[in-house]
């Protein structure tokens, strides 16, 4: 694997509490700037970039996030809040952990994909039931996939609809389960 491989970081478990080594106050949330022109903190993602990421990578329409604000706590962890709050704000959690930025390949969280991933139209890989079981158990799979490499939304069919399970990292023919340890299940 190359040095900038998106799987090389240690956030296979998207534990929202593991904020080791960040330069900001880990309890301080700051709202993302709307656009690059308003950016005050170096390296911080903008709202526009976040919305564009979901649109371009997964085809999730930007209007999905109209009522949401985005916040950074620590280095690169972006949270999504339905509504708004004063910025900065010192609380333990604000909305849900949503997206890991400040790395070459941005990575959505399992919870964000489950919450918003039904609206995705691109880079969604549908697994048959047996593979879905193995995926939520944390196993790596070798599915048929001739689409993009990188982070995919992994889904399966459940009572008549496609339901997102989480995030998988597809490289070299392997789909690596990004389901955090605490969310894995043997079904």
């Amino acid at each position: 694997m190359s040095e900038d491989d998106p799987g090389a970081d240690d956030d296979r478990e998207d534990d929202p509490g593991a904020d080791g080594g960040c330069e900001n106050d880990p309890e301080r949330f700051e709202r993302l700037p709307a656009t690059a022109d308003e950016r005050g903190v170096e390296g911080r993602a903008t709202r526009q970039e976040v919305v564009d990421f979901w649109d371009e990578r997964f085809g999730v329409p930007p209007e999905t996030f109209e009522a949401f604000t985005f916040w950074e706590k620590g280095a690169g962890k972006v949270w999504a809040l339905h509504g708004d709050a004063p910025s900065p704000i010192e609380v333990e959690a604000l909305g849900m952990t949503f997206l890991r930025t400040r790395q070459e390949h941005w990575k959505p969280t399992t919870d964000a994909v489950q919450r918003f991933g039904r609206a995705a139209t691109e880079n969604v890989i549908e697994l048959p039931r047996e593979h879905a079981r193995r995926f939520v158990a944390g196993e790596d799979l070798e599915p048929e996939w001739d689409g993009d490499w990188g982070y995919l939304i992994v889904a399966h069919e459940l009572v008549g609809g496609l339901e997102p399970l989480g995030v998988g990292l597809f490289t070299y023919g392997t789909l690596q389960s990004m389901v955090p340890k605490g969310r894995r299940r043997d079904l």
């Binding site: 929202p16 509490g17 949401f68 999504a80 809040l81 339905h82 509504g83 709050a85 704000i89 609380v91 333990e92 959690a93 604000l94 909305g95 849900m96 952990t97 969280t109 919870d111 489950q114 919450r115 605490g182 969310r183």
Partner: peptide, 20 residues
Amino acid sequence: LSALRSNAERLGVTNVAVTN
């Protein structure tokens, strides 16, 4: 609080602010 947060996230709650 970690149990609270993980339950809120698994259940897709996005309008919550957690305080201690």
